[in-house]
Computed example of a mutant assay.
Amino acid sequence: MDSDGPWVVAQHGQLYARDDGFDASFGRLVARIVADFIANHDSEYEAGWVAERDGAPMGCIFCVRLDAQTAKLRMFLVLPEARGSGLGAQLLDTCMAFARVAGYRRMQLWTHESHRAACALYAKRGWSLTDSRPVHSFGCDLVEQSWEIALQ
């Protein structure tokens, strides 16, 4: 994961700036999350995946420990050229399967309603929207969402 960290940070910063108008504070947040994951993750309970096509990274997803019973899905991203290929579903299924094997009883995630394709995928996989509220984050007015799923 050490070698993939810069790609994860760069892609999040670039795509969210381009597609959602996020400012540089979002890239700094992702950089802190990735650095913390690389430095401190417990591989029994946390994992990250970078999917490749022909040797080029196309997407990523991370499962991190929120507490003993709860995993948090983080940094889920699929490059535009890989969207619609099923890669997002494969990454999400892999992450959720890992969380089940690691013994988590539920998963949570935080996103924005503008990520309609990802939200549709969450709903299709059985996730429930637990909170939705307008916020001003990363230099933009957004609608922040929280989602959750029982794993057991």
Score class of each variant (00 low, 15 high):
1 M>L: 10
2 D>L: 14
4 D>A: 10
5 G>Q: 04
5 G>I: 01
6 P>K: 09
6 P>V: 04
6 P>E: 06
6 P>L: 01
12 H>C: 03
15 L>P: 01
15 L>A: 08
16 Y>H: 13
19 D>Y: 06
22 F>L: 09
22 F>G: 05
22 F>S: 04
23 D>F: 00
24 A>R: 12
25 S>F: 08
25 S>P: 05
27 G>R: 12
27 G>N: 00
29 L>I: 03
29 L>M: 13
29 L>R: 06
30 V>W: 04
33 I>R: 13
34 V>Y: 05
34 V>P: 02
39 A>V: 03
42 D>S: 10
45 Y>K: 14
49 W>F: 12
50 V>H: 03
50 V>C: 11
51 A>S: 09
51 A>W: 00
53 R>C: 08
53 R>G: 03
53 R>F: 07
54 D>V: 04
54 D>Y: 07
55 G>Q: 07
58 M>Y: 05
58 M>R: 14
61 I>R: 06
62 F>Y: 09
63 C>F: 04
65 R>L: 11
65 R>W: 08
69 Q>A: 15
71 A>H: 00
72 K>H: 07
72 K>F: 05
74 R>P: 01
74 R>T: 00
75 M>D: 04
75 M>F: 02
77 L>G: 07
80 P>R: 08
81 E>M: 12
82 A>F: 00
83 R>E: 14
83 R>K: 13
84 G>N: 11
84 G>E: 11
87 L>T: 00
88 G>F: 11
92 L>F: 07
93 D>T: 12
95 C>T: 10
95 C>Q: 04
96 M>E: 15
101 V>L: 11
102 A>C: 09
102 A>K: 04
103 G>S: 08
106 R>F: 00
106 R>H: 01
107 M>E: 06
108 Q>Y: 12
109 L>D: 02
109 L>K: 02
109 L>V: 03
110 W>G: 11
113 E>N: 13
113 E>G: 08
117 A>I: 14
119 C>V: 05
119 C>G: 05
120 A>D: 15
120 A>E: 14
122 Y>P: 00
123 A>R: 13
123 A>Y: 04
123 A>G: 05
124 K>F: 08
125 R>I: 02
126 G>S: 07
127 W>A: 05
129 L>T: 05
129 L>S: 09
132 S>K: 13
132 S>C: 14
133 R>P: 00
133 R>T: 09
133 R>H: 15
134 P>L: 09
135 V>S: 06
136 H>I: 12
136 H>C: 11
138 F>C: 01
142 L>F: 08
143 V>Q: 08
145 Q>K: 10
145 Q>A: 02
145 Q>N: 06
146 S>H: 15
148 E>L: 02
149 I>R: 12
150 A>E: 14
150 A>T: 12
151 L>K: 06
152 Q>A: 15
152 Q>N: 13
